[in-house]
Design a binder for these strands. Sequence first.
DNA 1: TTTTCATATGAGCATATGTTCATATGTTTG
DNA 2: CAAACATATGAACATATGCTCATATGAAAA
Lengths: 121, 121
Amino acid sequence: MCGKNEAECCEQVEIHEELLKIVNETMPEETELYDLAELFKVFGDSTRIRILFVLFEAEVCVCDLAHVLNMTQSAISHQLRILKQNKLVKNRRVGKSIFYSLADDHVRLIIAQGREHIEED
Amino acid sequence: MCGKNEAECCEQVEIHEELLKIVNETMPEETELYDLAELFKVFGDSTRIRILFVLFEAEVCVCDLAHVLNMTQSAISHQLRILKQNKLVKNRRVGKSIFYSLADDHVRLIIAQGREHIEED
DNA sequence: TTTTCATATGAGCATATGTTCATATGTTTG
DNA sequence: CAAACATATGAACATATGCTCATATGAAAA
């Protein structure tokens, strides 16, 4: 690491102090940082992404999701639980089935931004 | 799971067919889904989020990042590698130090959307 | 050229995560 | 009420991930 004296790290004492000040002012609370990371973690799995893309098009029951995505009902159900806990989807019961749909439009926006980024080059 | 005959799952044969059709048309390619998940995975760690928040404010060297975030140079360096591989940050050498900065503004937008979502309720 | 400093990186370890399997819950139908 | 169906969930297992430690790389200074 840098030098024995941390305060003089990189021989930039002044910039260092200023940085600390700015960062302390703008850095969100620990809990918000944690929640943010948790939220993005939810988007960080291709199965959940695929579920969301289906729900972009329609309100769908667990059974149909499993069939369309060619996955186990159990696997889908586990992932839907995570999506719901993070308020990305909501559900309602219709007879024996439970239909899932997008909770709000942040989901679309976040994924759209992500696509823009990866399609950049 | 639902019924013995998958095609008649949930007794909604018609909706099922239509769903499949729509999903096949709008679902991105496997590679894009994978890349999207990979990208969001990068945002899904609070250390990397914290690094990004520092870089929102200034171009900073590894050493200062480690100090400001109170973490090991090694840990920060490993995370910077991931951020750079995914083109969220770029770097340049100045003497012995290497300064990191945001690669583009998608990063700000994606995180802003994430914050909006979690601050909703 | 030999130190010294700043950063990068590989191996190892502990923890987190996704899927499967078995089973529980809850609703409808006979 | 019992059977059938749709979904949820806990345990177990394999893989992925973040941090630490030791060390390598690369540039500047002695």
